[in-house]
Protein backbone atom coordinates (compact mmCIF):
# COMPACT_ATOMS: atom_id res chain seq x y z
CA UNK A 1 0.00 0.00 0.00
CA UNK A 2 1.43 3.36 -1.00
CA UNK A 3 2.26 5.69 1.80
CA UNK A 4 -0.27 8.24 0.52
CA UNK A 5 -3.03 5.71 1.01
CA UNK A 6 -2.52 5.62 4.74
CA UNK A 7 -5.24 7.09 6.86
CA UNK A 8 -4.27 10.14 8.87
CA UNK A 9 -4.07 9.77 12.62
CA UNK A 10 -7.01 11.29 14.44
CA UNK A 11 -5.69 14.51 15.99
CA UNK A 12 -5.24 14.73 19.73
CA UNK A 13 -7.21 17.29 21.75
CA UNK A 14 -6.81 18.48 25.31
CA UNK A 15 -8.39 16.46 28.10
CA UNK A 16 -9.88 19.78 29.33
CA UNK A 17 -10.76 20.72 32.88
CA UNK A 18 -13.80 18.42 33.31
CA UNK A 19 -12.37 14.91 32.94
CA UNK A 20 -13.03 13.94 36.56
CA UNK A 21 -16.37 12.15 36.21
CA UNK A 22 -15.28 10.44 33.00
CA UNK A 23 -11.79 9.26 33.92
CA UNK A 24 -11.46 9.39 37.71
CA UNK A 25 -15.04 9.41 39.05
CA UNK A 26 -14.55 7.68 42.41
CA UNK A 27 -11.49 9.76 43.29
CA UNK A 28 -13.59 12.91 42.82
CA UNK A 29 -16.64 11.56 44.66
CA UNK A 30 -18.94 10.71 41.76
CA UNK A 31 -21.34 7.80 42.09
CA UNK A 32 -19.86 5.99 39.09
CA UNK A 33 -17.46 3.09 39.21
CA UNK A 34 -13.97 3.88 37.99
CA UNK A 35 -12.03 1.26 36.06
CA UNK A 36 -8.65 2.37 37.32
CA UNK A 37 -7.37 4.43 40.21
CA UNK A 38 -4.23 5.36 42.08
CA UNK A 39 -3.74 2.06 43.91
CA UNK A 40 -1.94 -0.43 41.66
CA UNK A 41 -0.87 -2.73 44.48
CA UNK A 42 -4.20 -3.55 46.11
CA UNK A 43 -4.61 -7.22 46.86
CA UNK A 44 -2.10 -10.02 46.88
CA UNK A 45 0.63 -8.46 44.75
CA UNK A 46 4.24 -9.55 45.08
CA UNK A 47 6.89 -6.88 45.49
CA UNK A 48 8.04 -3.96 47.56
CA UNK A 49 5.15 -1.63 48.23
CA UNK A 50 5.98 1.98 47.55
CA UNK A 51 4.19 5.29 47.21
CA UNK A 52 4.99 7.82 44.50
CA UNK A 53 3.89 11.38 45.11
CA UNK A 54 4.54 14.79 43.75
CA UNK A 55 3.15 17.87 42.09
CA UNK A 56 2.85 19.18 38.55
CA UNK A 57 4.08 22.72 37.89
CA UNK A 58 3.27 25.08 35.03
CA UNK A 59 5.58 27.64 33.48
CA UNK A 60 4.93 30.11 36.29
CA UNK A 61 5.89 27.53 38.89
CA UNK A 62 2.27 27.24 40.02
CA UNK A 63 0.87 23.83 40.87
CA UNK A 64 -1.49 22.37 38.28
CA UNK A 65 -4.80 21.35 39.85
CA UNK A 66 -6.41 19.75 36.81
CA UNK A 67 -3.83 17.32 35.46
CA UNK A 68 -4.44 13.60 35.15
CA UNK A 69 -1.48 11.21 35.31
CA UNK A 70 -1.28 7.59 34.22
CA UNK A 71 1.36 5.02 35.14
CA UNK A 72 2.30 1.94 33.13
CA UNK A 73 4.84 -0.41 34.65
CA UNK A 74 6.19 -3.93 34.89
CA UNK A 75 5.73 -6.14 37.92
CA UNK A 76 8.36 -6.74 40.58
CA UNK A 77 10.06 -9.25 38.28
CA UNK A 78 10.12 -6.91 35.33
CA UNK A 79 7.25 -8.49 33.39
CA UNK A 80 4.39 -6.63 31.72
CA UNK A 81 0.80 -7.86 31.88
CA UNK A 82 0.42 -7.63 28.11
CA UNK A 83 0.50 -10.22 25.30
CA UNK A 84 3.65 -8.73 23.78
CA UNK A 85 5.63 -9.66 26.89
CA UNK A 86 5.97 -13.36 26.19
CA UNK A 87 6.94 -14.05 29.78
CA UNK A 88 3.61 -12.62 30.97
CA UNK A 89 3.01 -11.45 34.50
CA UNK A 90 1.96 -14.17 36.88
CA UNK A 91 1.52 -11.90 39.84
CA UNK A 92 -1.97 -10.59 39.11
CA UNK A 93 -0.43 -7.17 38.73
CA UNK A 94 -2.16 -5.12 36.02
CA UNK A 95 0.49 -2.41 36.04
CA UNK A 96 -1.76 0.54 35.19
CA UNK A 97 -2.87 3.45 37.36
CA UNK A 98 -4.52 6.84 36.98
CA UNK A 99 -4.98 9.83 39.25
CA UNK A 100 -6.03 13.47 39.03
CA UNK A 101 -4.27 16.30 40.83
CA UNK A 102 -7.48 17.91 42.09
CA UNK A 103 -8.28 16.13 45.36
CA UNK A 104 -5.23 16.36 47.65
CA UNK A 105 -3.92 19.46 49.43
CA UNK A 106 -1.51 21.57 47.38
CA UNK A 107 -2.53 19.57 44.29
CA UNK A 108 -0.35 16.61 45.12
CA UNK A 109 -0.88 13.36 43.32
CA UNK A 110 -0.11 10.02 44.90
CA UNK A 111 0.09 6.44 43.69
CA UNK A 112 0.39 3.26 45.72
CA UNK A 113 2.21 0.63 43.74
CA UNK A 114 5.08 -1.84 43.83
CA UNK A 115 8.59 -1.12 42.72
CA UNK A 116 9.04 -2.54 39.21
CA UNK A 117 11.85 -4.94 38.42
CA UNK A 118 14.26 -4.46 35.53
CA UNK A 119 12.74 -5.87 32.35
CA UNK A 120 15.99 -7.53 31.34
CA UNK A 121 17.06 -5.60 28.26
CA UNK A 122 19.64 -3.40 29.98
CA UNK A 123 17.23 -0.69 31.07
CA UNK A 124 17.09 0.29 34.72
CA UNK A 125 13.77 -0.20 36.55
CA UNK A 126 11.38 2.49 35.40
CA UNK A 127 7.73 3.45 35.07
CA UNK A 128 6.14 5.09 32.02
CA UNK A 129 4.13 8.19 32.90
CA UNK A 130 1.49 9.76 30.65
CA UNK A 131 0.41 13.31 31.46
CA UNK A 132 -2.78 15.08 30.35
CA UNK A 133 -4.12 18.48 31.34
CA UNK A 134 -6.13 21.48 30.22
CA UNK A 135 -3.88 23.50 27.94
CA UNK A 136 -1.93 20.43 26.82
CA UNK A 137 -3.11 19.56 23.31
CA UNK A 138 -1.16 16.30 23.11
CA UNK A 139 -0.39 14.10 26.09
CA UNK A 140 3.28 13.88 27.08
CA UNK A 141 5.26 10.81 28.03
CA UNK A 142 7.95 10.75 30.66
CA UNK A 143 9.59 8.13 32.85
CA UNK A 144 10.16 7.60 36.55
CA UNK A 145 13.51 6.09 37.53
CA UNK A 146 14.50 5.45 41.14
CA UNK A 147 17.18 7.23 43.16
CA UNK A 148 18.18 4.03 44.97
CA UNK A 149 19.02 2.29 41.67
CA UNK A 150 22.12 4.37 40.97
CA UNK A 151 24.17 1.57 39.45
CA UNK A 152 21.36 0.45 37.16
CA UNK A 153 20.61 4.05 36.22
CA UNK A 154 24.26 4.53 35.26
CA UNK A 155 23.92 1.70 32.75
CA UNK A 156 20.53 2.70 31.38
CA UNK A 157 20.62 3.41 27.61
CA UNK A 158 17.79 5.94 27.73
CA UNK A 159 19.28 8.00 30.55
CA UNK A 160 22.64 7.84 28.77
CA UNK A 161 21.13 9.70 25.79
CA UNK A 162 19.92 12.58 27.91
CA UNK A 163 21.82 15.74 28.71
CA UNK A 164 23.34 14.98 32.12
CA UNK A 165 22.00 18.28 33.44
CA UNK A 166 18.44 17.08 32.78
CA UNK A 167 18.74 13.43 33.83
CA UNK A 168 17.73 14.09 37.40
CA UNK A 169 14.30 15.30 36.25
CA UNK A 170 13.50 11.62 35.63
CA UNK A 171 14.74 10.25 38.94
CA UNK A 172 12.25 9.93 41.78
CA UNK A 173 13.88 10.61 45.13
CA UNK A 174 13.40 7.99 47.80
CA UNK A 175 12.25 9.35 51.13
CA UNK A 176 12.00 6.71 53.83
CA UNK A 177 8.86 7.72 55.63
CA UNK A 178 7.08 6.23 58.61
CA UNK A 179 5.92 2.67 58.13
CA UNK A 180 2.57 2.34 56.41
CA UNK A 181 2.36 6.02 55.69
CA UNK A 182 -0.11 6.49 52.84
CA UNK A 183 -0.70 2.79 52.58
CA UNK A 184 2.87 1.96 51.58
CA UNK A 185 5.23 -0.22 53.57
CA UNK A 186 7.52 2.71 54.02
CA UNK A 187 9.29 4.08 51.02
CA UNK A 188 7.86 7.16 49.40
CA UNK A 189 9.35 8.46 46.18
CA UNK A 190 8.97 12.10 45.28
CA UNK A 191 8.50 12.82 41.59
CA UNK A 192 7.54 16.31 40.45
CA UNK A 193 6.74 17.23 36.87
CA UNK A 194 7.74 20.65 35.54
CA UNK A 195 6.17 21.57 32.21
CA UNK A 196 8.66 24.37 31.55
CA UNK A 197 11.63 26.22 33.00
CA UNK A 198 15.10 25.35 34.28
CA UNK A 199 13.84 22.14 35.84
CA UNK A 200 11.65 21.13 32.91
CA UNK A 201 11.01 17.40 32.98
CA UNK A 202 12.34 15.40 30.04
CA UNK A 203 9.38 14.48 27.85
CA UNK A 204 9.67 11.75 25.25
CA UNK A 205 8.51 11.21 21.70
CA UNK A 206 8.40 7.45 21.35
Amino acid sequence: MARDDKLRQTPSQTVGPYFAYGLTPEQYGYDYKQLVGNNLSAGDIAGERIAIRGQVFDGNGDTVRDAVLELWQADSQGRYAHPEDERGSNTGFAGFGRVGTGTLAEHFYEFQTIKPGAIGDGQAPHITVVVFMRGLLNHVYTRIYFSDEAAANDGDPVLAQIDPARRNTLIAQRQDGPDDADGADGAIYRFDIHMQGDQETVFFDA
Binding site: D58, G135, V140, F203, F204, D205
Partner: peptide, 13 residues
Protein backbone atom coordinates in the same frame (compact mmCIF):
# COMPACT_ATOMS: atom_id res chain seq x y z
CA UNK B 1 -1.12 26.48 26.26
CA UNK B 2 1.66 29.07 26.79
CA UNK B 3 2.28 28.04 30.40
CA UNK B 4 1.65 24.32 29.90
CA UNK B 5 3.22 23.41 26.57
CA UNK B 6 6.62 21.76 27.02
CA UNK B 7 9.30 24.38 26.46
CA UNK B 8 12.04 22.07 25.23
CA UNK B 9 11.98 19.65 22.31
CA UNK B 10 10.76 16.14 23.07
CA UNK B 11 13.54 13.55 23.41
CA UNK B 12 13.24 10.64 20.99
CA UNK B 13 12.78 7.38 22.86
Amino acid sequence: TPLRAPGKPLVVL
